[in-house]
Amino acid sequence: MNGLTSKQLIGFSIFLLAIFVGVPMAISATGRWDFYFTLTSVALLAIASAGVWLTFYIGRINIGQGAFALIGAYVSAILVAKAGISFWISLPVAGIFAALVSVLIGLPILRLRGVYFAMITLVLTQVVTLTALALPITNGAKGITSIPLPGGISLFGLQILPPFDSMADTKLAFYILACILMVLTYLALWRLVHSRLGHICRSMQQNEELASSIGINIAYIRIIIFAISSFFGGIGGALFGSISQSVYPSSFQVQDSVNFMLNCFLGGLGYVFGPMLGTLTLYFGWDLLFTLGKYQLLVYSVLLILVIRFLPNGLLSLRLGNIGKGGGK
C-alpha cells in the first residue's frame, strides 16, 4: 500500500492488537462476556455503515442500507437453512445478491439527488420489509429461525477451520470473524478512497456536471459505488443472521437504516474510519445507558442532539491537526 507512513502503520498495528488481543484479554479479565455480543454487533454494523459512508462519498445520502442488510440476511438464511449450503459460500453470495438488487434499483433512483434520494432510499427499507412479509420463501412474519451455525472449512482434506458448533466459545469465534471482516472492509474502503476511483468519487461529490464534463461516466461510477455499498450491507446482514441464528422482517427496519446513516454522520463524513467510530459510540453508548431503564432513550437522544449541536462536523473533527484528513489513519 503506497502512501502509508510509519505513523499510520503503527496506528494500524495498535488497532489490530487492540481488537484481536486486547479486547479478548480485557473481557476474560473482567468477566463481562456479554460485551462480546455487543462488540460483534458493532463490528458487523460498522461493515454496513461503511457502505453508507461510500454512497455519501459520491454525494448521496443513503438511508436504505437496512434494505440491503435484510436482503443479505435472508439470502444467507435461505441458502443455509433451506438449501443446506455452507455458510462460507452463502456469505459472499448474499453480498453479491444485494449488489445485483442494488444495480437494478439504482438504475432509476441514482438519478435522484439530495433529499429525493434520501427519501426514496428510506422508503426502500420499508418496502423490503413488506416484501419479506409477503413472499412465501421468507416465511412471512414468522421469519427464518434456528439457522445452523457456520460449519468448518477444509481444503484438500486439511481442516482449516473447525465447525462453529464444535468450538468451546462460539461468541469469541463470531467476534473474531466479525472483526476480520470489518478490518477487510475498511482496508478495501481505504484502498478505494485512495485510488483513482476515489478521486473520481470526490469530484462527483463536489459537482457531478463538472465531473461529467471532463469525461467521467458518472452514471456508471454511481452504479458501481452503490453496488459496492450494498455488497457491504449484504455481508453485514448475512453475518447478523448467522450470529442471531434467525431472521425476521423486523430484523432491519427504517430505524436501523436511519441508525446506519447516523453512524456515518456522527463519526464524520470526511474520515474513512468515521463510520467505525460512530457505530462504536452509538451502539456502545446505547448499551451502556441500558441501566437507566426507561430513561435510556431520553438520555441517549439528548446526548446525540448535544453532540450534533456542538460538533456539527462529526466526532473525528475533534482531533487536533489534520493527520490523514480525508483518509483516516
Binding site: 454522520f265 437522544s301 456539527p312
Partner: peptide, 12 residues
C-alpha cells in the same frame, strides 16, 4: 447535519 439533528429530535 440537519438530517442528523432531525433524526435525533425524532428519538427525543
Amino acid at each position: 447535519s440537519t438530517m442528523l439533528l432531525a433524526a435525533g429530535i425524532a428519538f427525543l
